[in-house]
């Protein structure tokens, strides 16, 4: 069984994101970029399945600018076998990503696609679900445990009320939550080995996908700063403020 793992190049989680002065988006110049942390968890899970003999090949795919090859290289250094770079400059919305991934799935025929549940830049949390819908495959989202069984996969999901386990018939889509695993970091020898692993270059046109945005961003602004608090004299005053001013009770 092949496993396909989409990985996204995003602003590093340590970076304090700043809005551009003209409000046209966030500052990306001279900003450290790295693999979306949820995708690292996805790569790790795929590698563990391969190491357990449940999968034969792990293929990483990234959709983005030429520099996204660095993100693919990180996945290869962690242990993925080969990479696919679908080169696109500019914004690619989740639906376009899902359509491209559908094309990749059509070519590669994986038994499992493991994605991060969301990317930490736009927090959309849509791609995995859209891909499942486009393919007509079962999906197990927000996975905290993944067990590959005969002909399918049991996914334990983190839901509001606790944990829910769903059994999916393969091929299937899984999206990862934080507690699924702790991803490894690539060792230096594996970083060096990864340089020799192949990365195939594609374009959205190869999959017949039009990536033109369908959404319009009106403006981007910093969240309002915190305002100073007030001291209340009594519980009664607190309750009154919560009721009348904050309107929360």
């Amino acid at each position: 069984m092949k496993i396909l793992v989409p990985v996204k190049r995003v602003v590093d989680y340590n970076v304090k994101v700043r809005v551009k002065s003209d409000g046209s988006g966030v500052e990306l110049a001279n900003v450290k970029m790295s693999m979306n942390p949820f995708d690292e968890i996805a790569v790790e899970e795929a590698l563990r399945l391969k190491e357990a003999g449940k999968a034969t090949e792990v293929i990483a795919v990234s959709i983005g600018p030429a520099q996204a090859s660095e993100t693919l290289r990180t996945a290869l250094a962690m242990g993925a076998d080969r990479g696919i770079l679908v080169k696109v400059d500019g914004v690619v919305e989740p639906l376009a990503v899902a359509k491209i991934l559908k094309g990749v799935v059509g070519e590669e025929a994986p038994g499992l696609v493991i994605l991060g549940k969301q990317a930490i830049d736009d927090d959309c949390n849509q791609t995995g679900q859209m891909l499942a819908a486009l393919l007509g495959w079962p999906q197990g989202t927000f996975a905290s445990k993944v067990v590959v069984e005969d002909g399918g996969v049991a996914v334990t999901r983190e839901i509001d009320g606790g944990l829910q386990t769903v059994k999916l018939n393969g091929p299937a889509i899984v999206t990862t939550d934080l507690r699924l695993n702790e991803p490894r970091y690539a060792s230096l020898p594996n970083i060096m080995k990864a340089k020799k692993k192949p990365i195939a270059e594609k374009t959205p046109a190869d999959y017949g996908v039009d990536v033109a945005p369908r959404l319009t961003v009106l403006s981007t602004a910093e969240p309002a700063g915190r305002k100073a608090g007030v001291k209340v004299g009594s519980v009664a005053e607190l309750v009154a403020k919560l009721k009348d001013e904050a309107g929360v009770i």
């Binding site: 790295s34 290289r73 990180t74 970091y185 690539a186 230096l188 970083i191 060096m192």
Partner: peptide, 18 residues
Amino acid sequence: SDINRETLTALLDLSETV
């Protein structure tokens, strides 16, 4: 001959993490 910018970045990332 094995060194390039990408390898260098990966090594520095690894060093920072460890």
